[in-house]
Design a protein around this nucleic acid. Structure first.
Length: 440
RNA sequence: GGCCCCAUCGUCUAUCGGUUAGGACACGAGCUUUUCAAGCUUGGUAGAGGAGUUCGACUCUCCUUGGGGCUGCCA
């Protein structure tokens, strides 16, 4: 039994769609699970859309997701000579012929056509879709070489698969019809036909193919929005496959160990952003504390220069408060801002609701006075001050205005932890400043 | 139009002829007597419709309906 060899063969158009990258993920997992090879083939025959930049974007996305490939990247344009040799072979054997043809856009020229059988049934056993069969007469002959002499997808794709000794073709559902054509080409060329596995599409809530109109659709966009590669990888994997038990958040090696093509779903899966967001939060919670601290520090450095000096304990404390409530890495700066800079923005609605009411000014000045007498500037001590004041009637009247005064926002980490992190001086001056300038 | 594929909670799914049809996301309620999260407890919602096969169908077969794909000198 020879080793399995699979390939991800995108055409570099500059952006990598999630449906496409899911195919890459399934290919990668299958290769790693079976101990085979995962190859990357760049189908760059469309010279207008294929640019070095687009290829760089593709490779960047692959690396970001941890989809490492084996062997050299295979560029389809570098194999044109072989494509044409095979065309000659088909011509010689009578499986291809030249004819004058008028294309849709009115160009007339001589193209090379592949001759399909006129009778019989073409069939294959798709690993995910099961047995597939189609009457040969239902498939027309099709062009394999353009009138300008360049090879078309069908021939290039098959010849490359032969040359790369691909054993399993795992690709999108939209290629099922092509498979009947390609099988005939493999046979006509005397090459073994690989196994096929066709993956359903990712669709939107309406059941239509998921596109950029439905939100982030390209890998790069998810990255920019602060999704972790592990989260996107895991979510996409679950869109059409599951380990058979109730596990959902899986480590990479678990995925590799459990992945089976035969358990991939036939039905199209609707993309659920909410679940991806949840998944992202799960992965953010898994980030090692030290790493998250570094992330927080990096965000702080992007906000204030110089960053106020604090000891490691302070940063760890802040990070530990932030981490469980971080949904997106890109949200960290706005959460960190009030801790490292005095020019934090005030949320208008929060100001109106919490600081705009009569009596708040007096309340804030009073609490600032009481805080200033706190023996120890620690969360529990500060909480005790407010608790004593509220006498068990709820701390809302104090908590909300204080929060908005010191952070500008109506939400965030625990208030008393926030005050402790801010320190005595900053807290008191911010409360007093807000009382004087933002209250009635 | 022709050919092909698909059909369990709103969503992703478990079930491989016998289950109170399970889990997760989302949603509702409650607790943690400060927000937002997190966490814990808890609630509701599902086998498109119709014929068969069978002692018994979500599960097998057929039809209907609905959805999708393909039908290029794109890939």
């Amino acid at each position: 039994m020879s080793e399995t060899r699979v390939r991800f063969a995108p055409s570099p158009t500059g952006k990598v769609h999630i449906g496409n990258i899911r195919a890459a993920i399934y290919n990668w997992l299958f290769a790693r699970h079976t101990g085979g090879k995962f190859l990357l083939r760049v189908e760059d025959t469309d010279l207008e859309r294929s640019t070095p930049e687009a290829i760089a974007v593709l490779i960047e996305c692959m690396k970001w997701l941890g989809l490492d490939w084996d062997e050299e990247v295979f560029y389809q344009t570098k194999n044109v000579k072989r494509h044409m040799e095979c065309v000659e072979q088909l011509l010689a054997s009578g499986r291809a012929y030249k004819m004058e043809k008028t294309s849709r856009d009115g160009k007339t020229g001589v193209v090379t056509m592949f001759r399909m059988p006129k009778e019989g049934v073409i069939e294959f056993d798709d690993i995910v879709k099961g047995h597939m069969a189609k009457k040969a007469e239902d498939i027309q002959d099709f062009a394999i070489v353009r009138s300008d002499g360049s090879p078309i997808f069908h021939i290039a794709n098959v010849v490359d698969d032969i040359d790369q000794r691909v054993t399993h073709i795992i690709r999108g559902d939209d290629h099922v019809e092509n498979t009947f054509k390609h099988i005939e080409i493999f046979r006509a060329l005397g090459a073994p036909v690989p196994r096929y596995a066709h993956l359903s599409m990712i669709v939107n809530q309406q059941g239509k193919p998921y596109s950029k109109r439905d939100g982030a659709a390209f890998v790069g966009e998810f990255r920019e929005e602060g999704y972790l590669p592990e989260a996107l990888f895991n979510y996409l994997l679950l869109l059409g496959w599951n380990p058979g038990d109730e596990r959902e958040v899986l480590a990479r090696d678990e995925m590799v160990g459990l992945f089976e093509l035969s358990k991939v779903h036939v039905t199209a899966a609707k993309f659920d952003l909410k679940k991806l967001q949840w998944m992202n939060g799960e992965y953010i919670k898994k980030i090692p504390a030290a790493e998250f601290v570094s992330e927080v520090k990096a965000c702080a450095a992007g906000i204030a220069s110089p960053v106020p000096g604090h000891d490691d304990a302070w940063w760890s404390y802040l990070a530990s408060q932030l981490q469980p409530r971080t949904k997106f890495m890109k949200d960290i700066p706005q959460m960190v801002r009030c801790f490292v800079a005095d020019d934090y923005p005030f949320d208008e609605k929060a100001v109106e609701k919490r600081l705009g009411k009569p009596g708040v000014k007096e309340l804030l000045l009073d609490i600032a006075e009481r805080f200033s007498k706190a023996a120890e500037w620690k969360a529990p001590a500060l909480e005790a001050v407010v608790k004593e004041l509220s006498q068990g009637n709820g701390m809302g009247p104090w908590v909300h205005p204080i929060r908005v005064a010191v952070s500008g926002r109506g939400e965030g980490i625990g208030l008393f932890e926030m005050l402790e992190l801010l320190g005595r001086e900053t807290t008191l001056s911010r409360i007093r400043r807000a009382a004087e300038t933002m209250c009635q």
